[in-house]
Design a protein around this nucleic acid. Structure first.
Lengths: 177, 177
DNA sequence: GGCAACATGTAACTTGTTACATGATTCC
DNA sequence: GGAATCATGTAACAAGTTACATGTTGCC
């Protein structure tokens, strides 16, 4: 159910096309929700059927036409309703960590390479978050919606830093083996 | 694909029934992989078909019979192969955090209650991890398999602590709003 | 000429969730 | 008498992944 809400949440910011949403998921809400463009297009269809978003096509010369989706009043009501419902356990899945659970059967050098890759990914996320913070939040007057995003962004920064630290420790331990 | 491997990883410890696995997922590997018992039973059927586990029924008086699954040589080979493959991006989904992304439309008091629930869940995870550490790892001689598990467990402890800290901060910010 | 970005989608498949179903034993 | 634990499963549905499909503009 919650992909629908994640999309609605994004659309409270501004009307967006499926393509915009897919990129937006990677850039901002992607810290706590991921979705591929196929999923997003499918879900947008359902949201339109339920009247939670309104879609209109915008002609563009050269490029293909965009279909821009706007959240409706019913969509906003749905968000408020959702806010009062209890949450599912956050889902978290990490293959790399699972591999450490059977170290005896693993190729240790391969794991080290994979750790390096993972650490780099977290570093690039971290610098991305820092850039977003500087650009859109630091020293700006913020409304309630923006403040919520800033809170989550700051948590994202903390949690990326912790991940990098923990993975570096793991790498050292693996090397000392 | 990786649920199969998560199950195999658990079975490197000792042969287990579907029921054992479901509980084990919650207690230990659950930090980085979750699965319901329905998923586990379905996947065990596939693993048996591929010859990666062997299953035999054990009669019990009173209780229903258990079907105990043991990892085979092919299963161990599959794990080693897996260890050399690159990992997917870890998947992470959190409804509660998503809600902060559209604060304007949310019921703030409801969110505070949900934050309290979440913090308690992390606290109970943390104390569970501490107990496991004391009981099975502290002051013990460990083989390579156990060392890997300890590494991950220590990461789990760190990351629960960070979560609790971050969520408390979030709660304060929400109250100051 | 080739690749990336823009832009939307379908089809087939695998995973994950929810609800249902059975039935004994133990504890309160 | 009722709930929890032990133990295994099916069926239906929702969510997520992978591969395919199309066609333009702009950059190197």
């Amino acid at each position: 159910m919650a992909l629908a809400e994640a999309i609605l949440v994004c659309l409270t910011d501004r009307p967006m096309s499926g393509y915009d949403l897919a990129k937006n998921f990677d850039a901002s809400i992607g810290f706590f929700w991921r979705a591929s463009h196929q999923q997003i297009y499918r879900e947008l269809g359902k949201l339109r059927d339920k009247g939670l978003v309104e879609s209109r096509e915008i002609s563009q010369s050269g490029k293909p036409n965009r279909i821009v989706h706007t959240i409706t009043k019913d969509g906003k009501k749905a968000l408020n309703l959702w806010s009062r419902k209890p949450n599912r356990m956050p889902s978290f899945k990490d293959e790399l960590m699972a591999k450490f659970y059977a170290l005896e059967y693993m190729d240790i050098d391969a794991l080290k390479d994979q750790l390096t890759v993972r650490i780099d990914q977290h570093k690039s996320k971290l610098s991305q978050y820092h850039k977003i913070k500087e650009r859109f939040y630091d020293g700006k007057k913020l409304n309630r919606n923006q403040i919520g995003k800033l809170f989550v962004l700051e948590m994202g920064i903390e949690s990326e830093q912790t991940s990098i630290h923990n993975l570096n420790t793991l790498m050292e331990k693996l090397s000392d083996l």
